[in-house]
Amino acid sequence: MKKLLIFILILFCTLVFAELPDGNKLLKQIDENMYAKNMISTSQMIVHGRRSSRTMKLRSWTEGDDRSFSEYLAPPRDAGTKMLKLKDKLWIYNPSADRIIQISGHMLRQSMMGSDISYEDMMEENELTEVYSAVTTGEEIFNDVNCWKLELTAIVEDAPYHTKKVWIDKEKLIPLKEERYGKSGKLLKTTEILEVMKIEGRWYPKRMIFKDILKKGKGTEFIIDDIQFDVNIPESRFSKAALRK
């Protein structure tokens, strides 16, 4: 028993004093793993409300950081709702009104389809290395997985979150947990990846939970059913005309 204790203590010390990998390098590896030139996915979004939970199905087309298009497939009420993001603009199409509305100003702050994700959050999907510089601060076990713990600080002025803490799966190099902080150090949002999957040779999140810390509630679950990388997406997909089709 005593031996075991000493062993653990030594192990612990080695872990603490072991040289930590360079944060920026890790970040780059994540980007390389997660980032695809373009992808098409089908996913589910589960919104946990105060009274009941709702599952929405959607199909998304993404190209780089700047362009994405998504269409809601279910439930019937939301089916046919489409969103188009081009750089810093966001349009939404609603079939019952047959209108395309640009989301701006006040509306950007609203939650998207009742989830913990706001339209503003939608607008902000950049490669981590473009926006942040990282320092590895240690290692931690998250959900039984050995992780590097990274602290990210914004290097550009208009990064929506000034700092982030990220827990990275040492083996699979995907961020299992992310905490987003304001400039003053207040925790604003968290993302946790609960399940991962291997697709076309890369590890990718399967099931995750987004949570707006300031809001009351159980957060929003996101499940990716199907994803294809580096497929050809016709140019016409990212046009306002596609919203109405």
């Binding site: 914004a154 002025e157 929506p160 304001g182 400039k183 003053s184 604003l188 300031l214």
Partner: peptide, 14 residues
């Protein structure tokens, strides 16, 4: 809890 965005759109809350 107060949340705001600065002139560049950076979130913060305190």
């Amino acid at each position: 809890v107060l949340r705001w965005r600065d002139k560049n759109g950076v979130y913060d809350a305190r």
